[in-house]
Design a protein around this nucleic acid. Structure first.
Lengths: 226, 226
DNA sequence: CCGGATTTCGCCCCGCCGGGCGATGTGCCG
DNA sequence: CGGCACATCGCCCGGCGGGGCGAAATCCGG
């Protein structure tokens, strides 16, 4: 499955670094360096023209920094969306989080070895993600902090029958009993019975608390919606 | 900086796998294999006795699986807390998330190369974290989904006055109008007025939908609360 | 100093919600 | 076959929630 070589665009303001990266990458048979940019604006422009598979993007650059450039590139819905591998000297939290929000596929430090860089390029180009270990660590800590327990409220969720969970899920979407009845093809009274049991089993008072419970127990999760 | 060798405990129910891992790790000068466990219970017991620096833990094991064993080991507040590197054949979401919640430092697939394994052991032992690329990818996606924008505050939230936001926040915690009035030292009618405006401004029908909105707009977030 | 925004509160109305009690049918298990 | 859990629906009712209408008091900016 020797596919075509990965087309890479290098964006770094330091010519020496840029040269070194280009040399290392170009030496690989499965990697083609299709262009180099000295600032974020050039990176955006060249991405639009060369449509590389991956942009190796330094965070700190003049004119337009790596984050803004990434935002422009990945934020354009009609354009070509390459993978972006962020490159930085320090692993500052804000940069990491912002880059991840923007959709960057990876984040590696400049003190990484040549082998690390090459494997990072290949991995990110393939659609997977790669972070520097110390970065991953913070991401995990944050993850663990955000989603503390596992079987905490879930345990109580198991006390519900399938139908009851189904009703609760719809309640958690903001539907009224009548709307739920219509959607499930049931009598409104039946929905009330099911939901009444839900409130009783979970020791909740009203639907507002039920919605809270649904979110807290991850039965439903926040996400981009209308 | 040649510190003492990393003391590793191997936990895997398949003797052959266990042997292979032990052989690979023991061949390294900076790694000592101090023990082997064939199931989760043994892993917990041996960890308490040998206090290794790192436990290489298979997810699927008899008696007590890797997740439960990890929970026991890391959940014990008084005991010794080693790093835990999870090992699995498949990268199932549930396993990953649960392991991360429990505090596992890393997660690698059994199809990783020997070099990957060794670097994973060294990285996790040093306190950093490491995940298989495909796992990292999902973690990032989840992260991006949970924390959508940077300057998040839903535009519509800005249409609310300070007091209205305050009331909405309490509604989103499951409080009734009466309870909110008591907490804010107001008449119940006042709370109804404020909340009525909230529903009107945000084009919502009832408090259930308001709770949904609060979570979706990140006015409140899922997490541990009193 | 006047007008708009905000906060506060009262009264009335009625619809939906939540709870209690009962009933029927179905499938499963010992 | 006799329970048991689950799903389905009905009736009744008290209360909280949501909406309309009005009205003070405060603050702030033009």
């Amino acid at each position: 499955m020797t596919a075509a070589a990965v087309r890479v665009l290098i964006a770094d303001d330091q010519a020496m670094v840029r040269g070194a990266l280009a040399a290392v990458l170009a030496a690989q048979s499965d990697i083609d360096v299709v262009g180099e940019a000295a600032d974020g604006e050039q990176a955006v422009r060249l991405t639009g023209r060369l449509h590389p598979d991956l942009v190796l993007m330094d965070v700190r650059m003049p004119v337009l920094d790596g984050l803004q450039a990434t935002a422009r590139i990945l934020g354009d819905p009609r354009g070509h969306r390459p993978r972006v591998l962020m490159l930085t000297t320090f692993d500052l939290d804000d940069y990491v989080y912002e880059a991840l929000r923007l959709g960057a596929g990876g984040f590696i430090l400049k003190d990484a070895t040549t082998d690390d860089l090459l494997s990072a390029v290949r991995i990110v180009a393939s659609g997977d993600a790669l972070l520097a270990p110390s970065v991953t660590r913070r991401l995990i800590e944050d993850f663990a902090r955000t989603r503390p327990a596992g079987p905490r409220p879930s345990a109580r969720l198991n006390a519900l029958t399938e139908r009851e969970r189904e009703v609760l899920t719809l309640v958690a979407r903001g539907l009224s009993n009548r709307e739920i009845a219509a959607r499930l093809v049931l009598a409104e009274q039946t929905v009330k019975t099911h939901f009444g049991r839900v409130l009783s089993k979970l020791d909740l008072r009203d639907r507002a608390q039920a919605v809270v419970f649904a979110y807290e127990s991850a039965l439903v999760a926040p996400g981009p919606r209308a």
